[in-house]
Design a protein around this nucleic acid. Structure first.
Length: 891
RNA sequence: GGGCCUGUAGCUCAGUUGGUCAGAGCGCCACGUUUACACCGUGGAUGUCGGGGGUUCGAGUCCCUCCGGGCCCA
């Protein structure tokens, strides 16, 4: 039933119109009565709300939405919740500045707290002026501030047309997520998968926090090689080269490669350190680089990760001198106390930063004659916290870990199990699997989850204090699952009262929060209602799809697999869809620091959401894409073309007053070969597009559909125009041929709207609203079979042939530089044998579209006549053009 | 240093298992206001498939090597 086709069509305003309608009609509401087999569930990345959305988000989230809309049309009930990631440093910083506060977890919660500021117009509040507040108060302010960000994010997503069920949002910091995260931790703890350990770990001095392997970033860092002499038993020098001479007080061994001939005679002997006279062994280890420096290195506690490896594998003593504050310990270490360097340490090194200690040590070495030559500048790879700007120190501290196969465990071979999970998971594209394998194989430690931050999920444990008020880390106090979420810094454990905090025989709470990934790794469990909504859980978990970026395969994807494997002994999802990067025109990754970022909302407003989606969907998964406004303009043209062609095809012969001549989608009414050929071709398109989408290749589906749509407009629509008008006939007595054209047009349109709906949801929904009921996004995905049945076995080549014949007629007019309206009085056309039947059967349509008014003879082309690449080899051998019609005056 | 991806028309990209594979769109040039569409239509031109070797009857396609981009891990 064609209702109201507008006189002028436009893509403007469709986003707001349909966002409202979809919300009102619950088009994307999840029906939780569906069974697991009927559900397609998606574990969408929760964007970081304190950051800003950029073009890359629009890009990758569009890919996911195309999948969601396709699966929904295939009859799946799509579970597609959206989360907001509020955790982390950016939020903490903003809260500090916005409200003028800072978090001090040792303070009690103040339920009546009012912040000193409400917005400081971007000005920073000096730390000294920040009011210290409890963690719980701090978190409340974080939540307040992020609420506004979430509104803006949702607005953008809705405008982009994400078919999310907006009733299903969650936050990574809300009480549900906190409870789930703490519950999972407690279960890890009870199964021995979580443990605390005093261990060397990477430490950021600026941020005062431990840093996990996944947060590391290796960067070039300038330093100097210092050639320093150690001394053998006979006093002979052994030169090493080090960039960190200030660590000489913490040296525990000299180490060279076992095959290094230069040092064979030293293995098994000892040498003494310069300045401090500490006797250390000379050992062999394969990790020593023969070609670096002198080939023999000093091993300290700890200069770098190789030192940690040696310390562990060679069972070396611990002689740590650098503390969490980045300074050398204030007390002279025991192993130096009786040596020649005790005074040097006490006077020049104790309490100094690593930097000033280095100067002091170098001066002393120079004086003692143990420095050989002057320091030589060098660049070397140094570990940084990804958000930090000072090299990380390695300090020993007590932290919580979750097992992830990075460290041997006597109970299970987790590494092998997790590698197996990687093989089970379907990566799109498949080669992304290698990144997972490489990462898991390269892990050399368990997952450090303690973070010395505030706005995050608290480690849900307390520690008992002994009668002297000293913390006893073995006396763990844990909450019951029913109590979760808990904040150990502001709540007392069951059986204790708050006034026992920090008192002898009392308790203290763990001050740390868990790594952000420790919560977001649980997103599949959190959204699925794990241990909260068993009914939902059974219907959606394990999930179908995890879309994400390739950069976080090692973090988010891997940690999610770890948690699900440990908790449920299953993969969290069947498929992982990995989107690529957006590159700017110089083929550089777009990033804020380069100033080449475009605001997504402006982009959507300027080009229209369908246009931007088209650009995104035209890029394959896993492939980097250029930011191309040109592609968006093509998308916009496609959307407008869909509107215009639909308007045209739907209004033939329909009397707007009476509704007479109404199109009926009855395949039996399609009786003309050309119409059948068009439907036959469309059937192939449906098959190919469906197969492509099933294989997570949305780009191919779009390309196939789009190119057929354009051929449909350029050739088929032009060919059947005259016939479809059915000129002269009354609405109730049109010919069967006219009905055939009108019906075929409508069937094709109906099919193509569905095929295009996941890509350009707004324009297709607009057309759908003109003549169909409900939403195209809930309409069934088309199948080829009814089209093929309507085609009655007619070869799709017929449309191609007729299209080429029409193009050949157009070409002669184009060459003659006359209007396409110019009549062809007579002509002879040579057609290759293969195309002849198609052209012959569509001859009347070809003549009409080409304005061939007189005789038009068809002859079979001879060998070598015509170029197959030009109009399929069809050539007009002779012709006579009539007078071009008189030009109408410009209005 | 290791791994993965990538290099095809001025631009953005397709090119399944080696055999109409030299392609599309944009841009460009020429023409045309045709009542679905000027946010248009029609027609046309455009390439040592990064370089060099090899396998093969046959190589953008497979192998080797070199060069250039991007990312990850050391």
């Amino acid at each position: 039933m064609v209702r109201e086709v507008p006189d002028r069509v436009s893509t403007d305003g469709l986003e707001a119109k349909f966002d409202e309608r979809w919300a009102a009609e619950g088009t994307f509401a999840f029906d939780r009565s569906a069974t697991r087999e009927q559900v397609y569930s998606i574990d969408t990345p929760p964007p970081t709300v304190s950051g800003s959305l950029h073009v890359g988000h629009v890009f990758s989230y569009t890919h996911t939405d195309v999948v969601a809309r396709f699966q929904r049309m295939r009859g799946k009930e799509v579970f597609y919740p959206m989360g907001w990631d509020d955790n982390g440093l950016p939020t903490e910083r903003r809260v500090q500045n916005y409200f003028g506060v800072r978090c001090d977890p040792s303070l009690p919660y103040d339920p009546d707290f009012t912040p000193p500021h409400q917005g400081t117009e971007g000005k920073k509040v000096k730390p000294a002026d920040q009011v210290p507040i409890s963690r719980r108060n701090f978190i409340e302010l974080c939540e307040e501030l992020t609420a506004d960000d979430e509104r803006q994010f949702e607005e953008l997503w809705r405008r982009l047309g994400l078919s999310v069920d907006w009733a299903q949002t969650y936050q990574t910091i809300d009480s549900t997520s906190r409870a789930a995260s703490q519950r999972a931790f407690l279960r890890n703890l009870s199964r021995g998968e979580a443990y605390q350990a005093e261990a060397p770990g990477l430490w950021d001095v600026t941020f005062q926090t431990a840093v996990a392997q996944a947060e590391l970033e290796a960067r070039e860092y300038p330093g100097h090689y210092h050639r320093v002499a150690f001394h053998g038993a006979d006093g002979s020098p052994v030169h090493i080269e080090t960039t960190r001479p200030e660590l000489i007080p913490s040296v525990v061994a000299l180490i060279a490669h076992p095959d290094d001939e230069r040092y064979q005679h030293l293995f098994g002997t000892t040498v003494t350190s310069p300045l401090f006279g500490v006797e250390v062994p000379v050992l062999a280890h394969h990790a020593a680089a023969m070609d670096k420096g002198a080939g023999i290195a000093m091993c300290c506690t700890f200069g770098d990760l190789t030192d940690v490896q040696w310390w562990r594998e060679l069972q070396l003593p611990t002689r740590s001198v650098i503390g969490r504050d980045g300074r050398l310990t204030r007390d002279t270490p025991a192993w130096l106390a009786d040596g020649p360097g005790a005074a040097l340490y006490a006077e020049a090194l104790a309490g100094r930063t690593a930097f000033s200690a280095r100067t002091a040590v170098v001066d002393a070495l120079r004086e003692s004659g143990d420095l050989d030559g002057e320091p030589k500048p060098t660049q070397r790879m140094t570990n940084f916290y990804e958000k930090g700007d000072k090299p990380l120190e390695i300090v020993t501290s007590r932290q919580w870990y979750i097992r992830n196969g990075g460290r041997a465990w006597e109970q299970r071979d987790l590494k092998a199990e997790l590698l197996g999970r990687g093989k089970e998971l379907d990566f799109h594209p498949d080669f992304m699997r290698v990144r997972y394998d490489n990462w898991v194989n390269g892990l050399n430690g368990d997952w450090l989850i303690s973070r010395q931050r505030f706005f995050g999920v608290a480690v849900p444990v307390w520690y008992g204090l002994d009668e002297n008020g000293e913390v006893d880390y073995e006396r763990l106090i844990t909450p019951s699952e029913a109590e979760l979420p808990v904040d150990p810094t502001s709540q007392a454990p069951a059986g204790y009262t708050e006034d026992q905090r920090g008192t002898p025989n009392g308790f203290v709470g763990d001050n740390d929060v868990m790594d952000t990934w420790a919560t977001s790794s649980l997103s599949p469990l959190i959204v699925s209602g794990w241990e909260r909504d068993a009914d939902l859980f059974d219907r959606v978990y394990p999930m179908d799809l995890r879309p994400q970026g390739q950069d976080i395969i090692r973090t988010w994807l891997f940690s999610s697999v770890v948690r699900s494997h440990l908790e449920c002994d299953v993969l969290p999802w069947k498929n992982a869809a990995i989107s690529g990067w957006i590159l700017d025109p110089d083929r550089k990754k777009m990033s804020k620091s380069k100033g080449n970022v475009v605001t997504p909302m402006d982009l959507l407003v300027e080009h229209g959401s369908d246009a931007v989606r088209y650009w995104a969907a035209a890029a394959r998964l896993g492939t980097d894409a250029a930011f191309e406004v040109g592609q968006m303009k093509i998308g916009r043209r496609l959307a407008i073309k869909v509107l215009n062609a639909s308007k045209f095809a739907l209004t033939f012969g329909v009397d707007p007053e009476t509704g007479a001549g109404e199109i009926v989608l009855d395949p039996a009414a399609v009786t003309v070969d050309l119409d059948r050929a068009m439907l036959a071709g469309l059937a192939d398109v449906v098959d190919q597009a469906t197969a492509a989408l099933e294989a997570y290749d949305h780009t191919r589906a779009l390309e196939i559909t789009e190119s057929y749509f354009w051929a449909f407009c350029d050739d088929y629509l032009e060919l059947v125009k005259d016939r479809a008008y059915g000129a002269g006939a009354d609405a109730d007595q049109v010919s069967a041929e006219t009905v055939s054209a009108r019906t075929a047009l409508a069937i094709a349109l109906d099919t193509m709207l569905r095929l295009l709906a996941p890509f350009i949801p707004f324009a297709t929904e607009e057309v759908w609203s003109w003549w169909r009921t409900g939403s195209v996004h809930r309409a069934p995905w088309p199948t080829a079979e009814p089209l093929r049945s309507a085609a009655q076995g007619v070869d799709p080549l017929g449309l191609t042939a007729a299209g080429h014949a029409l193009a050949a007629l157009r070409k002669l007019k184009s060459a003659a530089k006359v209007s396409m309206k110019t009549p062809i009085l007579s002509g002879t056309v040579a057609v290759p044998a293969a195309l002849l039947p198609g052209v012959r059967s569509a001859l009347e349509d070809v003549r009409g579209a080409g304005r061939a008014t007189g005789t038009l003879d068809l002859v079979e082309a001879t060998d070598g006549q015509g170029d197959p690449d030009v109009q399929g080899g069809i050539v007009v051998v002779s012709h006579e053009l009539g007078e071009p019609p008189a030009k109408k005056p410009r209005s």
